[in-house]
Design a protein around this nucleic acid. Structure first.
Lengths: 225, 225
DNA sequence: GTTTTTTTGACAATCCTTTGACACTTCTTC
DNA sequence: GAAGAAGTGTCAAAGGATTGTCAAAAAAAC
């Protein structure tokens, strides 16, 4: 998980970045708005923390530019100590939350985690995660603890369908509709067989699936937690 | 759209409620936490605005209680003028946003709309609650205190029938008609057996059912709240 | 043409439902 | 009140349906 932090005050920037890094995230640091936009383009962070008052391009403007091409990535605004945030403007620009200085370390992390949690089930785009697994559709690969697992296109498609339902059960018909053709005639064990292989690949204990749980008479769903 | 507003200061309560109503929402007004919980149970609002400092039950506690049976409904916290909000605690309890007094009318509405927007696509669908139990038909699951109980399709169907009668007794014939086929001939213990298993699953003390009460010579009903 | 992926069919394992026997409670009737 | 009737709770086990699993064939991809 990469988090972009933009602040023109070096002290604040460093304090924030350190705090975020200690929680296990990677950080991208930007000293002004222009750099923030550049870094966002290049590295596609999973979340942005933007100070509002910055040289060249202010936080609002960064948010506006990002939102023109990504309306999903969470954006948090930071405000200086005695500076009013224009909350209404921020929300209209698509901001997700606001953090007023002075802030505590735990408050910042709580808000970041909350924003990530809210945004997690979306992400139409590239990679997505389920449990401790990161799936990269373009590479047909899933990663856990740095080790990669090769997947087939159909398997990725199945995982994405599960992911997009975020914990809700997905019916067998939905699988066949989405991952196969609509007019498919499944009087067979096709779906089960694919589940079997998929579980053998991604589950730590395929006999007791933690990621893909079966919902009898319905289909399958992502395991809780 | 119903919005619950809880504040022990009548002036604030009225100002907020009026403001929200002018935007086309219906409001439920609560003067303290206890009333807020009661109103929530009865009317199932689509969003909650909770003052933190309130008599009897404070905002945190209201949030905690609501979250035990509904983890989806957006909850916003209000803070008095010179009063610190425990943001970390609030977020951990499942709050969605915080509004510090003094607030402007447009800020409040922007935050409310943003919270509703976020919650909309997560539409829990046709899930419903009975007592402290949240039933999610699509996953064949009931949840209490975050722990989930697996159900069968028939059990979900039985619970839904009970729920739809909201406290009124449901006849045994109605059960057989609705949850089984119409032309079913049950001179047997089928229904009782299903009630037995269902109670074992969802009742804290199956010997003394609190959720599913039997009405002799009629059928069953939801236990009084 | 070789390798990978997908599909199929047979069978086993599991879960859900139903049934029958019996115990228990509540209501009716004497 | 006591006895019987009706209604319900409980258990164990049978029956039916759904899903898991394997090996191997078919199809697709390289």
């Amino acid at each position: 998980m990469k988090i972009l932090i933009a602040d023109d005050d070096p002290l604040t920037l460093d304090a924030l970045a350190t705090c975020v890094e200690n929680e296990g995230f990677t950080t991208l640091r930007a000293a002004d708005g222009r750099e923030a936009v550049k870094l966002w383009r290049e590295d596609k962070p999973d979340l942005l923390c933007l100070d509002i008052m910055m040289p060249h391009i202010d936080g609002y403007e960064v948010c506006r530019r990002v939102r023109t091409s990504d309306r999903a990535v969470p954006i948090l605004f930071l405000s200086a100590k005695n500076q009013e945030i224009d909350v209404v403007l921020g929300l209209d620009l698509g901001a997700d939350d606001f953090i007023r200085k002075p802030f505590t370390r735990s408050e910042v992390m709580a808000r970041i985690r909350a924003a990530l949690r809210r945004s997690a089930p979306r992400g139409e785009g590239d990679s997505f995660t389920l449990h401790d697994l990161t799936v990269r559709p373009r590479s047909l690969i899933a990663e856990r603890d740095g080790k990669s697992i090769e997947l087939t296109p159909r398997e990725v498609s199945m995982l994405r369908l599960l992911h997009d339902h975020g914990g809700e059960a997905v019916s067998r018909d939905a699988f066949l509709d989405t991952c196969w053709g609509l007019d498919y005639f499944p009087d067979s064990r096709t779906l089960d067989q694919h589940m079997l292989l998929l579980r053998k690949k991604i589950e730590k204990d395929p006999a007791h699936p933690a990621i893909i749980q079966t919902v009898r008479a319905i289909g399958y769903r992502l395991g809780g937690a």
